[in-house]
């Protein structure tokens, strides 16, 4: 198509405006992504690498630590995300009810963990669940057994799940609250007059109307949990005996703690990418409009 002079000038101006952003995105996002893809095809340690083709992928399936990290991550995901989403929904519905007292206070209290310093709260959790910590005191007070929270694989996982749920429930709740506040109140008044029970109002009206937000938060939480690193690193360091080791932590270990294996670490990173992509597609498919 023949370009007019005005069209060309507009094009130049347009490119001039987007160029700075494009350059930055290129250097800091696209280049690393492509480079890590190239790296994932390299084998070897430290700086002495050579092209290995799909050798790293073969190594994945034979690597027991990777398989442990993968299964730990999937356990966190499968248990923590649904619990957190349900909790966030319940809190949001309760705090959206005009009859609830001290709504502002509860809303702040539940959201606060999301903006708390990560290290501070990790230390707090570590101390609560240490062998002579608050959790042990409470459990033994009620006649429960003395549990080595961070020493047993099962309980260490429970502590991590508690920690991330505590931290991120309020964050998700805010999305639901915002969505709930956009729902016309007369819809619930109509349901009330029509004699629709509260349970049915929640499951047949609230949940379907929040579906897009639920999908969004589920995907965001899935991505977050697949990348889980900070809590584990600060509370359990992946222990005991790799029982809480996550994929991200394993990538960190491969790169910075062991003799660096950049190529293999990049391959494990791409496992997370593929998992995020596959799970997101599945979630979109489940939440699709069926009509």
């Amino acid at each position: 198509m023949a370009q007019t002079r005005l069209g060309r000038a507009e094009n130049r101006a347009g490119w001039a405006f987007v160029m700075p952003a494009l350059v930055l995105v290129g250097i800091f996002m696209i280049y690393p992504i492509l480079w890590s893809l190239w790296m994932s095809l390299q084998t070897g340690r430290g700086m002495t690498t050579s092209f290995g083709g799909l050798a790293n992928i073969q190594r994945l399936f034979a690597d027991p630590i990777f398989l442990t990290a993968l299964s730990n991550t999937m356990i966190f995901l499968a248990i923590q995300v649904p619990i957190m989403i349900m909790l966030a929904l319940v809190f949001a519905v309760m705090l959206n009810d005009p009859k609830t007292k001290f709504r502002g206070l509860f809303r702040t209290a539940i959201f606060l963990p999301a903006v708390t310093s990560l290290v501070a709260y990790s230390i707090l959790f570590k101390s609560i669940f240490s062998n002579d910590g608050l959790a042990t005191t409470i459990v033994t007070f009620f006649g429960g057994p003395e549990i080595s929270w961070l020493g047993e694989p099962f309980w260490a996982k429970v502590v991590i799940i508690l920690a991330i749920t505590w931290r991120w429930t309020g964050y998700n709740m805010i999305f639901y609250l915002a969505a709930l506040q956009n729902i016309d109140r007369s819809i619930y008044e109509a349901a009330r007059i029509d004699g629709v029970p509260a349970r049915a109002q929640f499951f047949r009206i609230t949940i379907p109307m929040l579906k897009p937000v639920i999908l969004f938060t589920t995907i965001i939480s899935t991505i977050g949990t697949l990348q889980l690193f900070d809590e584990v690193q600060n509370i359990t360091q992946g222990g005991p005996s790799n029982a809480t080791l996550t994929l991200s932590q394993y990538i960190f270990n491969l790169t910075f703690r062991f003799m660096p294996s950049y190529g293999y670490a990049a391959t494990v990173s791409y496992v997370i990418v593929v998992l995020v992509a596959v799970l997101s597609v599945i979630q979109f498919w489940i939440a699709r409009d069926r009509k």
């Binding site: 007369s186 008044e189 109509a190 009330r192 007059i193």
Partner: peptide, 17 residues
């Protein structure tokens, strides 16, 4: 409200979207 034998039509229609 559900036992008063009434039905109500709202300004905003209040349909389930």
């Amino acid at each position: 409200a559900s036992r008063r034998g009434i039905a109500m039509v709202f300004q905003s229609y209040a349909l389930y979207p």
